[in-house]
Structure formats: C-alpha cells, structure tokens
C-alpha cells in the first residue's frame, strides 16, 4: 500500500482521537495560562459527534448516573425491537413450518423392523433426571422468556393488561429462579454426555445420508449419539453457556458491568434464546411425536433393541460386546 492511501485513514484516526482528547481533557489551567471558561465551554453537538456517549462527574455514588446522554439507548431499542424480535420470530416460526412440512411429507418415523419387544438400557435414572430437570426448566424459561419478547403482542391483547402483568411478573420470577437448575443441568449434561458427543468420521457419513430422516428405511450407522443429536447436544451446551453467561449478567444488573455490557448481554441473550428455542422445538418433535420409540429413551430409559439397531447400530454393537444387549451374545474375548 502506498503512503498516500494510508494517509487519510491516519488523519481521520488522529483527527478523531485528537478531538476526543481535547474535549475530554482540556489542558490543565496552570497559573500562567489565560483561560476564558465561557468561550471554552463544551458544546453538546460537537461532543456528541465525537463521542459515543457523554459522561461527566456526579456526586452521588451511582456511577451509572454520570452518563449524561447515551444515544446507544436508541440503537439498543432498534436491536431489541427489530433484530431480536425477528431472529426469534423467524427461527421459531421457520422451524415450526419446517416441522409441519416434514410431518406432512414424512409422517412419524416408525421402527422399520417393528418393535422387537426386547429392550436395552439407553439412559440410566441419573441421566434421565438431568435431562428432565434441564428440559423442564428450559421449557419454562423459554416460555417466560418468549413472553418477555413477544407477550405484549400475542398474549396481552388476549388477556388484558393486569392479567398479563401478573403472568409476566410470575414468569419473571420463574425465569429468574429456574435459571439456576437449568444451568446446573447443562453442566451435568455436559459431563454425562460429552464423551459420546465428540464429533468423528461416522458423523460425516451420517450427515451425508441426511441422517436417513428423509428416506424411508435408510439408517446410516451411528454410535450412541448420531450427528443430529450431537448438534442438539452442542447447541444446548454452547447455547446454554451463552444464555447462562448473558443471563447471569442480566440477573445481577450493573454489578460488574456497565451499560454497554448490559445492552450486549441482553442482545446475546435474546438472540441465542430465540434460536435455541427454535432448535429445541425440533428436538422435542423428534424426541416425542416425530419418531416412534424415541421417547422411551428418556421415558423409561429402556429402548427397543430394533429401534436401537436402526438408529444407533454402532452403539448397539458396542453394548453387545459388553453383554448389555438382550439376545445378542456377549463378545467373547479372543483367546
């Protein structure tokens, strides 16, 4: 790059910062210096053009109050009311529409070979407990969260202002408190299932085959968790962490953060929340009405062996070797 082309950038850079410096820290009035405080007074419009917000000194301890004007409030409002709103709305409505289409086209995914009548253990009691704790709190968090984002358009006109406030207030309490079991749940899920959720080559094949979801009778091999489930897992883990971090910031407003961080946290929380809700709707669909036999994995913990063979053939193999699959001989160690 030639010097000439660098120059305007640099000039702009120094120009801007120079002006900021000048505005923020006018030079010290040494005794020898002649100052006319009236002429040197700060100008609001100049300052606003230079700085993202106007801040000064205030005698009360609430340091937030020292920000005089934060035009960013208006930007945040745009973000919140448009970006967050539409990300959530499009993700959720999109997923719902997709599932509807999927259901209409594919219908319920049955166990192709029919139930075998024999079951094998997929999730132990502890795992199921974690799942349902996390799932249950997620659902409440999601509903109450979505209420905050969409309630005033959807619910408020239906039930009226007072009832809506009562509901929202309760929802807020629920959201605040259930956040904690949810976060614990996410941690335990991570510990319980991370080993089986590390992506590998099998997943590539699985994905290439579209998980067999779109073709009847196609069953790409999978270990305990197929790539789709891994995606769910990692969405929950990463999304959960994002929601937790941003959520905790929102829960303890301004403890360690300033306005900009609060606004950012809110936006992250809102967007991630909306997207995760959409993803989880798909998960719930598959885990319940979408697939025959799937629910049992989290219901009783025992899945039909045929179901397992179809969806997690490699896992069944592994389990069989450990002798945990009824009807399959335990692998005999080679001698």
């Amino acid at each position: 790059m030639k010097l000439v082309s660098l120059f305007p950038l640099r000039a702009a850079f120094f120009g801007l910062f120079g002006a900021i410096l000048l505005a923020v820290s006018a030079p010290a009035p040494a005794a020898a210096q002649i100052v006319n405080p009236t002429a040197q007074a700060v100008q609001e419009d100049k300052l606003l053009r230079q700085l993202h917000h106007l801040e000064g000194r205030i005698s009360i301890p609430d340091q937030k109050a020292s920000v005089l004007i934060q035009p960013a409030g208006r930007e945040w409002r745009e973000f919140h009311n448009t970006t967050v709103f539409w990300t959530g709305a499009i993700s959720i409505l999109g997923i719902l529409a997709a599932l509807l289409v999927f259901y209409a086209v594919r219908g319920r995914i049955a166990i192709d070979s029919g139930p075998s009548g024999k079951t094998m253990t997929r999730f132990n009691g502890f795992e199921r407990f974690i799942h349902w704790m996390t799932a249950g709190t997620f659902i409440v968090l999601g509903i109450t969260g979505l209420n905050v984002a969409f309630g005033k358009y959807l619910l408020l006109p239906l039930i009226g202002a007072e009832a809506f406030t009562t509901f929202s207030q309760l929802g807020k309490y629920a959201h605040n408190y259930l956040a904690f079991p949810f976060m614990i749940g996410v941690v335990f899920m991570f510990l319980a299932w991370v080993k089986e959720n590390i992506p590998n080559a099998v997943d590539v094949a699985w994905l290439k085959a579209g998980g067999g979801l779109f073709v009847k009778g196609a069953h790409p091999p999978a270990k305990k968790f197929n790539a789709g489930q891994k995606l769910i897992f990692w969405s929950v883990i990463l999304g959960g962490v994002a929601l937790s971090i941003s959520g905790v910031i929102l829960l303890f407003p301004f403890y360690a953060t300033g306005m900009a961080e609060m606004q950012l946290a809110q936006i992250v929380h809102g967007i991630v929340g909306g997207v995760i809700v959409a993803i989880m709707i798909a998960h719930i669909y598959i885990g319940s009405v979408g697939m025959e036999g799937a629910f049992d994995a989290m219901g009783s913990g025992e899945v039909d062996v045929n179901w397992a063979k179809e969806h997690h053939s490699l896992w069944v193999k592994e389990e069989a070797e450990k002798g945990k699959v009824p009807g399959a001989a335990a692998a005999v160690p080679a001698e």
């Binding site: 009035p29 040494a30 005794a31 002649i34 100052v35 006319n36 405080p37 009236t38 002429a39």
Partner: peptide, 11 residues
C-alpha cells in the same frame, strides 16, 4: 470560575 469570562489562579 467555570462561568467566568476569565479565571485568574493565585497562590
């Protein structure tokens, strides 16, 4: 002094 037209600092 902030509202003066000239400020004179003395010891």
């Amino acid at each position: 002094a902030a509202h003066s037209t000239e400020y004179v600092r003395i010891r």
